[in-house]
Each structure stands twice: as structure tokens, then as C-alpha cells.
């Protein structure tokens, strides 16, 4: 076994770039998170017609509102990419600027989502109303929870950059965060399509 270790591909790439091991580990976590979301999507797909006499998706959702949410999150994914470009160039001011823009857009998205949730609950359409709404709140709420965690993480890293600049370890952390943030945007594509657009089509 010990003879195989230096030749194993992971070791070889780790020699070139020790960060690649960390990145791969985080990538595997993200893949498992995709499986988590897939099971929530499957639950939603199974339950989306079980409204128990309550309202269905096309009576509840406002498409222009959701389109705004989608474009805000998409833009934040883009500005996160710009922040990473700045981090590779070791440009501290730009990193801070673009991550603050990303965080503000993320906060805007989250507040819109919470506004939608409180509106639904006030109208009596909470997760207790029907199987459809339970599945809806679980799926979209889990995404929102991820966004909240991402925002806290972003806050911590912005503070780190302000205080200590951009040593290699911080750039690695920023790279992991950007991976996470892009991943959340990808999950939202499917929430937008499957929950909101297909819900509006009444299928």
C-alpha cells in the first residue's frame, strides 16, 4: 500500500498545489448537499398537488417578484466571481468592495424571500396548511438557510480581509466561499423553474 501513495493522483496534485486537496474536500461536501436538495426536490415533486383543499402554487406565487429575486441572486453570483478575480490579483480593496456588493445583494434576496414567507403565513398559508406548502417551505427554506449561512461566512471573511489582508490561507477560504455561493445560485435555477415557473403552469 505504501508504495502506491506517492503515485496516487490526489497526492500528486496536492504536491503541485496543497489547496487543491481542501478544494476537493469542499467540492465533495457540495455534491452531498446537492443530494440533500435532490431529496427535497423529489419530496416537493411528489407532494406539489396535495393542496388539501388549500391554494395551489399558481394562486400563491407572484412571478415578477420571483424573477426579481432570481436576477438579484444571479447578479450576486457574478459579483462573487469578480471578487475572486480580484483575490487572485491580490487586490485587497477590490476584494472587499465586490464581496460587500455580493453580501448586499444576498441580503436583498434573503429579505425578499422572508417577505414572501411572512406574507404567506399571514394569509394563513403556512407549512401547516397542506402537504404542498410543507414541501414548499422545506425546500425553499433550506435554500434560504444556506444563503443565511453563506452571508455570515461572508461577513467573517470580509472582516478577515480588512484586518489581515490577503495571505494564501484567506484566498483559499474565499475560494471555498465562492464555490458555495455559485452552488446556491445553481440550486436556485431549479427552484425557480420547478417550484415557481412550473407552479404557474399549474402542472
Amino acid at each position: 500500500m505504501s508504495q502506491l501513495v506517492p503515485n496516487s493522483p490526489l497526492e500528486a496534485s496536492a504536491e503541485h498545489d496543497p489547496d487543491s486537496k481542501t478544494m476537493f474536500g469542499f467540492w465533495v461536501y457540495i455534491m452531498t448537499d446537492c443530494v440533500l436538495f435532490a431529496s427535497l426536490f423529489a419530496t416537493y415533486a411528489v407532494l406539489h398537488n396535495n393542496t388539501f383543499g388549500g391554494p395551489s402554487g399558481n394562486e400563491l406565487f407572484s412571478l415578477p417578484f420571483v424573477l426579481a429575486e432570481t436576477l438579484i441572486l444571479l447578479t450576486s453570483s457574478f459579483t462573487c466571481g469578480l471578487a475572486m478575480l480580484a483575490a487572485r490579483k491580490r487586490s485587497e480593496a477590490q476584494v472587499i468592495f465586490w464581496f460587500i456588493v455580493t453580501a448586499v445583494l444576498g441580503l436583498a434576496f434573503l429579505s425578499l424571500e422572508l417577505k414572501e414567507f411572512t406574507h404567506l403565513v399571514h394569509e394563513g398559508n403556512s407549512w401547516q396548511r397542506s402537504g404542498f406548502l410543507s414541501a414548499f417551505f422545506t425546500l425553499v427554506g433550506t435554500h434560504g438557510l444556506h444563503i443565511s449561512v453563506g452571508l455570515m461566512w461572508m461577513g467573517v471573511l470580509i472582516t478577515q480581509v480588512v484586518r489581515r489582508g490577503l495571505p494564501k490561507a484567506t484566498v483559499r477560504r474565499l475560494a471555498l466561499l465562492s464555490l458555495f455561493w455559485h452552488f446556491l445560485d445553481i440550486v436556485w435555477i431549479f427552484i425557480f423553474t420547478i417550484v415557481y415557473l412550473m407552479g404557474a403552469l399549474r402542472v
Binding site: S13, H16, D17, L85, R88
Partner: peptide
């Protein structure tokens, strides 16, 4: 995620460009 020149300031191919 690896580059041939692992110097810190080297922009790596796997990290994309503005374009």
C-alpha cells in the same frame, strides 16, 4: 485546481477570467 507554476500570484487556469 492545479497549475504548473504554483507561485501565489500566478493566476491559475482553473479560476477563469473576466470574460
Amino acid at each position: 485546481m492545479s497549475s504548473h507554476l504554483p507561485t501565489p500570484a500566478q493566476p491559475e487556469a482553473s479560476h477563469g477570467s473576466l470574460r
